[in-house]
Simulated assay, not measured.
Amino acid sequence: MSLLKKIKKFLNWSSFAKPEINLNTELYEQLRPFRLPLILVVLMMMVGATGYVLIDNFSLIDAIYQAGMTFTTVGFTEVAPISPAGRLFTITFILLGFCVFTFSIGLLIEVLKKGALVSIIKERRMLYKVARLKNHFVICYHNLYTIELSAQFRENHIPFVVIDPREDLPEIAEKYKYPYYIVAQPHTKTALLKTHLSSAKGLITLSSNIADNIALIATVRLYEKEIDRKRPYFIMTNSDNDDDTERLKKLGANSVVSPSKLVAQRLSAMSVRPDMENLLEQFLYKKDSPIDIEEISVPDYSWIRFKRLKETNLRNITNSDVVGIRDVNNKFIPMPRGDTLIGTGTKLLVIGTAESIRLTKRVVKSKQKPEEFKYV
């Protein structure tokens, strides 16, 4: 195996990605009206060639050539002298050809006027583009949240597909720069196949109707079991009250965001501590911020498991700070002391630069303390 093939296999790349569902049946259905014109064209060519062979003793190739020029009304020249009977046959053949040509053009215009054929061809092309995506997010339903979220995803180079049943989605996608979109009901099996959910990282459902969000969460979790996915999908949704939030989490949502609650919390924080909010806006909410904060899970095989925080020397090793610890019971310890024990299922809230946080992840997820840091 060549080096390039090994790299492609390692990165799970494929030179030609096929969608999980094709539109060949729908495409053939739209092309069915063209069968009769094609049959008529073939019959006209056969009749014309046969007529020239029988009437004027043309060779087969000359007869086909003469029939083709006559049928298409090109009329460059006669390949051989044509008798009066042949000329009458030619006139009749031209009239019949004109009728077939007119009928075919009318049928073509009628099919294109309906727009279904063009729509299927465009959707088929989109499905092949979506099939190339890996670890993308499927965003269900277009609304104000989708517009803002898609802008953030584009800035951070996170691949995503927007799916919505509205027929004007192509125009919306062009306006708001959705690179990939599917027109379909999100909770259907066909929609899951069209969005290439099997290769996706997760799904975000942003419907204002909680019933739609419930149906999508249930559908995705069932699909997850159906394809025997090893890593569960990360599902996010929105709600307007605490009861709905609790219900959606029980049904399988990993994260439920309440926009009204977030806005209220942000406004409250800004009114009480405007300087702190300006600081967070400057350093944490921007894409190119020099400071970042992230929660890192400690795996069972990590070398820091069952060690005191001060024993890990993470501050000296990675130049980042642990500002919070969440234990397996979801109890959060802010600003933990050095003698805090890192147990099973612990999550560390780490603050630092993007580079220092990446290094912290690597150190925490190592089975043994890295060699270069053993003497720190």
Rank of each mutant, 00 (worst) to 15 (best):
V100G: 01
F101G: 12
T102H: 10
T102P: 04
T102Y: 13
F103Y: 15
F103A: 14
F103C: 10
S104R: 06
I105Y: 09
V111Q: 14
L112Q: 11
K113V: 07
K113P: 03
K113D: 13
G115D: 11
G115T: 06
V118D: 07
S119W: 07
K122D: 07
R124G: 14
R124T: 15
R124D: 15
M126R: 01
L127S: 06
Y128L: 02
V130I: 15
A131F: 02
L133E: 03
L133Q: 01
H142R: 05
N143S: 10
L144F: 11
L144Q: 13
T146Q: 05
I147H: 08
S150V: 04
S150R: 02
Q152V: 11
F153W: 07
F153E: 03
R154P: 00
R154H: 08
R154D: 04
N156G: 07
H157S: 14
V161F: 00
P165W: 05
D168N: 15
L169N: 04
P170L: 06
A173K: 00
E174P: 05
E174T: 09
K175A: 07
K175P: 05
Y176T: 01
Y178M: 14
P179M: 06
P179S: 07
Y180A: 02
Y180V: 06
Y181N: 07
I182L: 04
